[in-house]
């Protein structure tokens, strides 16, 4: 009868990847709460402005607004968001968010910034597709997600599959160190 979301499967309402001005890099909505592009843009704008001043670099941050729980994380000039209904388990959402941002990190080989993300938009879109299907969580482990996406990388250079995860992480770390020294 009364179908309380509490009793059903954990579900995600949207995944957003915005740039440092709040513009779309890649977004995916799984809920009918936003039926038009205008309402989606409005949601993105309010999420972006409400979280802008916070420091979500080291750890994922969280907020509650308009009846949604939003967990988010900023890496370089990219802002990652995952939203769900306000009675969702926050830690499940955080695991989705971390799966998303970490796998993007692996796929972009540590070079997590808007430019690289746009250059590899196909990977980002595939990555979202491997994390959530119709609101249901498919996978949250960053290595698995990146593995699934990268076996198909069309990028002619070094196929991702030939690079081990530890190598990828090493590149990521190196890149991070470089960006800190800048």
């Amino acid at each position: 009868m009364a179908d309380f979301s509490k009793e059903s499967c954990p579900s995600v309402k949207n995944i957003l990847l915005l740039d440092s001005e709040g513009k779309r890099v890649a977004v995916k909505y799984f809920s009918d709460d936003w039926s038009t592009n205008a309402s989606k843009l409005a949601y993105e704008k309010s999420v972006f402005t409400k979280t802008l001043k916070t420091n979500a670099r080291a750890e994922a941050e969280i907020t509650l607004f308009d009846g949604y729980i939003v967990v988010y994380k900023f890496v370089h000039d990219l802002h990652f968001f995952v939203s769900a209904g306000d009675d969702e388990n926050e830690l499940i959402l955080a695991s989705v968010l971390n799966g998303f941002s970490d796998s993007v990190g692996l796929l972009l080989r540590g070079d997590v910034e808007k430019r690289t993300a746009l250059e590899n938009l196909d990977l980002i879109l595939l990555c979202i597709d491997e994390i959530i299907d119709g609101g249901i969580i498919l996978e949250t482990d960053a290595n698995t997600i990146a593995g699934k996406v990268a076996t198909n990388a069309v990028d002619g250079s070094v196929p991702f599959s030939e690079q081990t995860i530890s190598q990828a992480l090493a590149t990521a770390r190196e890149h991070l160190a470089r960006s800190l020294l800048k």
Partner: peptide, 12 residues
């Protein structure tokens, strides 16, 4: 906890 998400969930 050092994680904001965890603190938020608990306090809520």
């Amino acid at each position: 906890s050092s994680k904001p998400v965890l603190r938020f969930a608990a306090v809520r």
